[in-house]
């Protein structure tokens, strides 16, 4: 048990940034309703604010085509009454969320009708971190100098794992990137999945660097497997990963697992991590592997030995300049 200077932590003020996944494709197939889910989350947020009058909650909605801030408990709009009456609790949030979901739906129609897109987690994570950096900059919002602000981020995610393994389309991207090679429009979907994977990981590493714990709550049907991706995110940043076994009692799970501050967590019996999957998948067959070969130039992962990297076209065991010049010559000849 850490013998950290406990007095400094017990009176912590919390800034909690919540990213809420509103992916309509998920919720339309899922047995329970989004509104049920939302009401339990709101009760949880309310309990966080009630724990301390200086606690602050920010909610960012993550949709399929956009993401946006929907609620900030410190904003004046949520307290000031224009016509002399107190606004209903979270009326602002619900209003913004409705607007956001409608907008998001519109964008979906304009886009690909056949495919089921995943949520834009990278965007909402990036925004959340920018917001937390702003709080870092403005320093302690509290008059008492000893009280420290606790920064904290919870992801509510319904998104399926993004495939880390990339097929030949990624290989095209790389060439496109280094040689200004043109890519066909139909390849963009897989391409953006790879970029989104990198983007989410970038955000996670940035959170780790500024010691912001990322808790993740993975909403999925009880027989589906854990999200390796959110497990990694929480493990890297020192947060908790939890997959509620059923959604009916979500509020209880939330208040038991996530509501405690970081100091108190050391004293609680929280769900233990059942191991984190750190395996990679190879770029050639998308197979999950535990030993493989990595290209020293571009860090592509392969399951078997090759003579030439199909991603960056370096010839292995040969000086790169030779490889590049033969490659350029070939390109010119084409």
């Amino acid at each position: 048990m850490p013998s950290a200077p406990s007095k400094n932590y017990t009176d912590d003020v919390s800034l909690l940034v919540v990213t809420l996944d509103t992916n309509p494709f998920f919720w339309s197939d899922f047995p329970s309703h989004f509104s049920d889910f939302l009401s339990q989350v709101l009760a949880f947020l309310n309990s966080i604010i009630l724990l301390g009058q200086l606690n602050q909650v920010v909610v960012i909605a993550t949709g399929c085509n956009s993401c946006s801030y929907v609620y900030d408990s410190s904003s004046n709009k949520n307290h000031a009454s224009t016509n002399g009456t107190m606004p209903a609790l979270y009326s602002n949030l619900l209003h913004n969320l409705d607007e956001f979901i409608a907008n998001d739906k519109q964008l979906t129609k304009a886009h690909e009708p056949g495919t089921v897109p995943s949520s834009l987690l990278s965007g909402s994570l990036s925004k959340a971190l920018c917001y937390i950096q702003r709080a870092f900059r403005s320093g302690p919002m509290h008059p008492q100098p000893r009280v420290r602000l606790r920064y904290w981020l919870i992801i509510f995610s319904v998104c399926k794992d993004l495939p880390m393994g990339l097929n030949s389309t990624y290989l095209m991207i790389f060439t496109f990137y280094t040689f200004n090679f043109c890519i066909a429009v139909s390849l963009q979907i897989t391409l953006s999945i790879f970029f989104r994977y990198v983007a989410i990981m970038n955000a996670i590493f940035s959170a780790q660097r500024s010691s912001v714990p990322v808790d993740s709550c993975y909403i999925a049907s009880s027989n589906s497997s854990n999200s390796a991706f959110l497990q990694q995110a929480s493990y890297i940043t020192g947060g908790i990963y939890y997959k509620p076994p059923q959604l009916d009692g979500l509020f209880q799970y939330l208040s038991a697992v996530f509501a405690t501050d970081l100091h108190s967590r050391a004293f609680l019996r929280l769900p233990k991590s059942l191991g984190v999957d750190f395996r990679a998948s190879c770029f050639c067959h998308k197979k999950t592997i535990d030993t493989g070969y990595v290209c020293s130039v571009c860090l592509s992962i392969f399951c078997e030995h090759h003579d030439k990297c199909s991603t960056c076209s370096s010839v292995f065991g040969q000086s790169q300049s030779v490889a590049a010049s033969t490659d350029n010559r070939k390109r010119k000849a084409e």
Partner: peptide, 23 residues
């Protein structure tokens, strides 16, 4: 930025271990 002729491209054999369960 890598100076092209300074290093040789190669495949490196690596292992991706899993993290064992707590306890």
């Amino acid at each position: 930025p890598a100076i092209a002729e300074y290093a040789t491209a190669n495949l490196i054999k690596m292992g991706f271990p899993q993290r064992a369960a707590e306890g």
